[in-house]
Design a protein around this nucleic acid. Structure first.
Length: 824
RNA sequence: GCCGGGGUGGCGGAAUAGGCAGACGCAGCGGACUUAAAAUCCGCCGGAGCAAUCCUUGUGGGUUCGAGUCCCACCCUCGGCACCA
């Protein structure tokens, strides 16, 4: 009996050996083609749970596969280390965010190492270290210099619990994405990135292999909308503006306008409001500002608003139209003003009903009998009540009205987007300080590059008061103006952590470069990322921001590619009791106990086997024993001596024929296995890959039992099995590789190649159907002709019974598969 | 409400140019080994039926020689967006 499989022992041993030998450190001086395989780096929450393994283990398997295929593989790992939880720990437990974060990193690094991945730890990146965030700040300055960062006052999303503003993407159904508190609105001066400049390009996903679902989500998020901007004439004493512009996708309904609605925040409201309406209007504005996002966005809520005592004129028919304000009109979209067409827009319809405003039908529904509308008719139709435009179908009407407006100079075709600029200011300590200075003489002055990084002070006080702790840190705030040397104040907000993760992929190319964010040559060598894997929850935030970043850098001439991630794959989510795993829910499953009981190889393989990678699912450890048993079988299969029963010197003819047949069968099955495993690896279909390897193991066990084939053929295919297993169970494969007398390391071997000639089936199962129902199966030569197949099918006893007294109407033949006899 | 993914044995899941439904595993049942148990190995394992056979991929229709796979309608479920003018 060979020694027992002891995963703990061999895993520890090989991890040490690989680290000592720096087996997985990579360099750019390499003749092999490069492959950059990146897994989204984890946030430093403290512990790695099984969900982290689900993200990292399969991507390591694929990276190892590419490595064996002859690529120079960069597969780095690091930590997304700035963010709120660290600061909350400081507030609640008095631990400094830096200490908290670095302790967590130490633990997580240890856990990550236990996976046995090919991470090149010499390239580790940690975003909260000054060597890193110096360059985060540098990129901020670049964006500023290129007009892509600006300071603007805007109504922003405010989370009262986190005590900071949030980007639109971080507000989920009116609640804070992070803590779940109801978000309210505040008017604050904040820093923004002009992501809207790239809106069009961000909707395109040219030349990249991404899931359709994610591309669609991004397109919906950008939300491009073609329409027409229309000017309504304004003649109001004491107001300079002579028009109000609205945006509409339905200019064909312009003759149905019976009122105009402005957003409560619209700048013209204060100027236009009449004296007698002023109190009512101001009250309405105050009320709508106090509302939280959920109250305001509630679809249940009845639409309400206030007439402001002023009018505009619809230039097409010279009608005087009353101006209202209502919070269903959003300042941030279009022009912050809409024309009210109650007959053809449900919101306008509800509004008109409530305030008894006229509803004028201008698009006739098919077969309309001049009855009163019960709801808005929003489909296309034929224009009516529209003077000389009447009779046109909607689509032509849209074109005709737009042309007419453009000719008259009363409007123009335009495109609007749902996406807003990216708000990056956070009123918190644990982030990269925004490198800006406010000087009483010079205004906003960027910190000069040589003065970077703007370091976080170590002795800030952490109080949950809604302002950055930096604001009360005098030695941080007080500085001098880089331009005029007058006393000046630093910006005390820090950057959204998505800023840090927008460029980390670049840092891995040259993590220790201290003269620039990256070494341009190394960047050119490694980037873009060939395969990026991670959770779909980042579909519209991180992935959109990173794409924006790369496009901005490209336009600055800093990088020469358009897209950061050539191929994207989103693994599914592992849930527990129908909920996502998270520390706050207290339903975290840690891999450590499984690793110490069954070994990392078993956990790796089980996670891949349990479901298709993109699917994920409920965590259930009942099946892990099956995978563990399989690895044990592999161990015994390889190490228990193979004793062929024949003597090569005087083999009988009969035995030789049997042996050759079995060797041929094994060879064929081995090559079919290579083909299937390789295909599944490429498609990241790990569950069926493992099933295939299990099947191959089973076949080898039967062959061993028969003791017929030669030792050399046996050894050859045991070697194949180990090579195919190496990415999945790297420790086990390495140990068995060594114990079968091969030279260290299996992980430097080439991936086996399928020989199609050897993989070809010589015999196939021909299915015989009668009227589409399975009636018989025949083993036939793969080279069977159609005539032979028909003949054989008709002669089968089992089939004849079904043909009795019937007439054969047709015979369908599918080569290599079946014969279907159609009878009547 | 709109957009997208998905519904297959007791369970996780296989099967896509439309061609053998249930690969591979878990659980279960039976057997071998053992004083016994564990481990391991072998066999069975969608449902009904003594059987021939029939039924079976969320539901109902359709196309086809043939449908888990294509089309129409509906139900359930997961994810995204949600007053976007």
């Amino acid at each position: 009996m060979p020694v027992k499989y002891n995963p703990q022992e061999i895993e520890k041993k090989w991890q040490q050996r690989w680290a000592e030998d720096r087996l997985y450190e990579v360099s750019e001086n390499d003749s092999r083609p490069k492959w950059y395989a990146l897994t989204m780096f984890p946030y430093t929450s403290g512990d790695l749970h099984i969900g982290h393994w689900y993200a990292t283990a399969p991507s390591d398997v694929h990276a190892r596969f590419k490595r064996m295929q002859g690529y120079n593989v960069l597969h780095p790992m690091g930590f997304d280390a700035f963010g709120l939880p660290a600061e909350n720990a400081a507030i609640s437990r008095g631990i400094h965010p830096f200490t908290w974060t670095m302790q967590n990193i130490d633990n997580m690094r240890r856990q990550l190492k236990s996976i046995g991945a090919i991470y090149d730890w010499s390239r580790e990146v940690i975003t909260c270290l000054p060597e890193y965030y110096k360059w985060t700040q540098w990129f901020f300055l670049k964006l500023y210099q290129n007009g892509l960062a600006y300071r603007g006052k805007a109504p922003v999303n405010w989370c009262p619990h986190c005590q900071t503003v949030l980007a639109n993407e971080q507000v989920v159904e009116g609640f804070c994405e992070r803590c779940g508190a109801a978000v309210s609105r505040r008017d604050l001066a904040q820093w923004f990135f002009r992501i809207t400049k790239y809106a069009d390009e961000l909707m395109q996903h040219n030349g990249i292999d991404w899931p359709e679902r994610i591309k669609l989500m991004q397109r919906n998020w950008v939300g491009k909308s073609q329409g027409t901007e229309i000017s309504f004439a304004l003649d109001h004493p004491g107001v300079d503006g002579k028009e109000i512009r609205v945006f509409t996708t339905r200019p064909d309904t312009i003759f149905g306008v019976t009122f105009m609605v402005l957003a409560p925040e619209h700048p013209l409201v204060a100027e236009l409001v009449s004296t007698e309406k002023r109190a009512e209007v101001e009250d309405y504005i105050a009320r709508s500002q106090r509302q939280t996002e959920i109250e305001r966005l509630s679809t249940e809520k009845e639409k309400d608003g206030v007439f402001i005592g002023a009018y505009v004129v619809n230039r097409l028919n010279q009608e005087k139209v009353p101006i209202w304000i209502a919070d269903y009109v959003l300042m941030g979209y279009g022009t912050g003003a809409v024309m009210g067409v109650p007959a053809h827009d449900q919101r306008d319809f509800d509004f008109a009903k409530k305030y008894n405003l006229p509803i004028r039908l201008v698009i006739a529904p098919p077969g309309w009998q001049e009855v009163e509308l019960k709801e808005a008719y929003t489909e296309p139709g034929i224009m009516v009540n529209s003077v000389n435009f009447s009779g046109l179908p909607s689509q032509q009407g849209i074109e005709a009205i737009s042309n007419f407006l453009e000719e008259k100079g009363w409007g123009k075709r335009m495109v609007t987007y749902r996406i807003r600029d990216w708000l990056i200011s956070r009123q918190r300590y644990w982030g990269a300080p925004i490198p800006m200075i406010y000087c009483p003489n010079c205004g906003i002055v960027p910190v000069p590059e040589p003065d970077l990084p703007v370091l976080l002070p170590e002795d800030a006080e952490f109080k949950p008061i809604g302002e950055s702790p930096l604001k009360y840190c005098e030695q941080f705030v007080n500085t001098t103006c880089p331009q005029c040397s007058a006393p000046a104040k630093r910006e005390t907000d820090t950057m959204d952590t998505f800023m840090c993760s927008s460029w980390y992929l670049l840092r891995y190319a040259s993590p220790n470069c201290d003269t620039a964010p990256f070494d341009a040559d190394k960047l050119r060598y490694w980037l873009p990322v060939d395969l990026y894997t991670g959770g779909a929850e980042h579909a519209v935030m991180h992935l959109l921001y990173a794409r924006f970043f790369i496009k901005a850098l490209r336009d600055m001439g800093l990088v020469d590619f358009d897209e950061p991630f050539t191929r994207l794959f989103n693994q599914g989510v592992i849930i527990v009791e129908r909920q996502k795993m998270s520390k706050s829910r207290g339903n975290v499953i840690t891999p450590d106990e499984y690793v110490s009981e069954l070994g990392a190889d078993a956990v790796r393989a089980y996670l891949m086997f349990v479901a298709p990678w993109e699917k994920g699912g409920e965590w259930d450890d009942s099946g892990i024993s099956g995978v563990s048993r399989w690895l044990n079988r592999v161990w015994n299969l390889v190490l228990e001596k193979y004793n062929p029963e024949y003597n090569p010197k005087d083999e009988s003819k009969g035995h030789r024929e049997l042996r050759e047949k079995m060797e041929k069968d094994l060879t064929r099955i081995a090559h079919q296995t290579i083909r299937k495993v390789t295909e599944d690896m490429e498609k990241l279909r790990f569950n069926t890959m493992i099933a295939t390897l299990m099947g191959f193991t089973g076949h080898l066990a039967k062959v061993k039992e028969a003791r017929t084939i030669s030792l050399s053929v046996w050894s050859e295919f045991i070697k194949t099995l180990l090579l195919l297993l190496a990415p999945t169970a790297p420790h086990l494969a390495e140990e068995l590789w060594q114990r079968t007398g091969h030279e260290y390391s299996i992980h430097n071997q080439s991936w086996p190649e399928c020989d199609e000639a050897l993989a070809r089936d010589e015999e196939i199962t021909l299915v015989v159907q009668v009227n589409g129902k399975l009636r018989d199966r025949i083993m036939v030569s793969a080279s069977i002709t159609e005539a032979e197949a028909r003949q054989m099918a008709l002669e089968r006893q089992r089939v004849k019974a079904y043909l009795e007294g019937k007439e054969i109407a047709d015979i369908i033949y599918v080569p290599g598969r079946l014969v279907n006899l159609v009878v009547r």
